[in-house]
Simulated assay, not measured.
Amino acid sequence: MLDPTDKAAFDGMVTQLREVDPRFCRRVDRMSRPKRRLKTAHAILLWTVAPLCIVYGGWTGLLLAVLAVGYGTYLFNRRNGTSPAPMWWTAPRKHA
C-alpha cells in the first residue's frame, strides 16, 4: 500500500508517460489482455460445434461446419498475436 503522496507521484508519472509515449502504453495494455486463451477457446468451441452442425443441419449444416472448422483453424493459428505461426513442414534455413 502506498502513501497518498507516493500514490499521487506515481499517478503523475503514469499520466506523463501516457502523454509522452502513447504507443508504448498501448503495447503494455495489450499485453495484459488474455486474447490468446480467448482465441483458443473460441477455436475449440467452433471445432466442437462443427459435427453437431453436420448431424442436425443437413447440407446447410455441412456448409456451416466447413466454415466453423476454417475459422477455428484461423483463430488457432492467430492466437499468438499478429505474427503468423510457422508451418510445421517448414524447416529453418541454416545460413552459411
Rank of each mutant, 00 (worst) to 15 (best):
M13P: 01
G81E: 02
V69L: 12
Y71R: 01
C53K: 05
L75F: 03
N80P: 07
T15L: 03
K94E: 12
L63R: 08
W47V: 06
P84F: 01
W89V: 07
R33D: 04
V66R: 02
K7S: 12
G12R: 15
L52P: 03
G57F: 01
K7Y: 10
D6C: 10
T5I: 07
F24E: 14
L63P: 11
R18E: 12
L63K: 08
W89N: 07
D3V: 02
A68G: 05
F76P: 02
F24K: 15
V55H: 02
V69E: 04
L62V: 14
N80H: 12
L46I: 02
V69A: 09
W47M: 05
A68H: 06
D11E: 11
I44C: 13
Q16Y: 05
A68D: 09
G58L: 04
T15M: 05
G12D: 09
T90I: 13
A50P: 01
W89F: 13
V28K: 06
T82L: 13
T40D: 13
M31V: 06
V66L: 07
L2C: 05
R23E: 14
S83Y: 14
V28H: 09
L62S: 08
M1Y: 02
T73N: 12
G58M: 04
P4S: 11
L2F: 09
L63S: 05
P86Q: 03
A43V: 03
G70E: 01
G61A: 00
L2K: 15
C53P: 03
A41T: 14
L62N: 08
L46W: 01
M31Y: 13
R18V: 02
L38C: 08
A8W: 07
A50D: 00
S32E: 13
L75A: 02
P4W: 06
K7Q: 13
T73P: 05
S83V: 09
D6F: 06
W88G: 11
M87Q: 10
P92G: 08
L17D: 04
G72V: 00
A8M: 07
R36W: 05
R23W: 05
V66G: 08
A96R: 12
T82F: 14
L45K: 06
C25N: 03
P4C: 08
A8K: 14
R79M: 09
G70L: 03
L64H: 00
P34V: 03
I44P: 10
P51H: 03
R37A: 14
R36K: 10
C53T: 04
V69Y: 04
L2S: 04
V28M: 12
A91G: 04
G70V: 00
L46Q: 03
P84L: 06
E19G: 08
T82K: 15
G70F: 00
R18F: 11
A43W: 00
V55P: 01
V28L: 12
W59M: 02
Q16D: 14
T15G: 11
Q16L: 09
A65R: 02
V55Q: 03
Q16H: 06
D11A: 02
D21Q: 08
F76V: 04
T60W: 13
T15V: 04
A96L: 10
L38T: 12
L46P: 00
V14A: 10
T15H: 04
K39V: 07
W88V: 12
M1H: 06
L62G: 07
A41C: 12
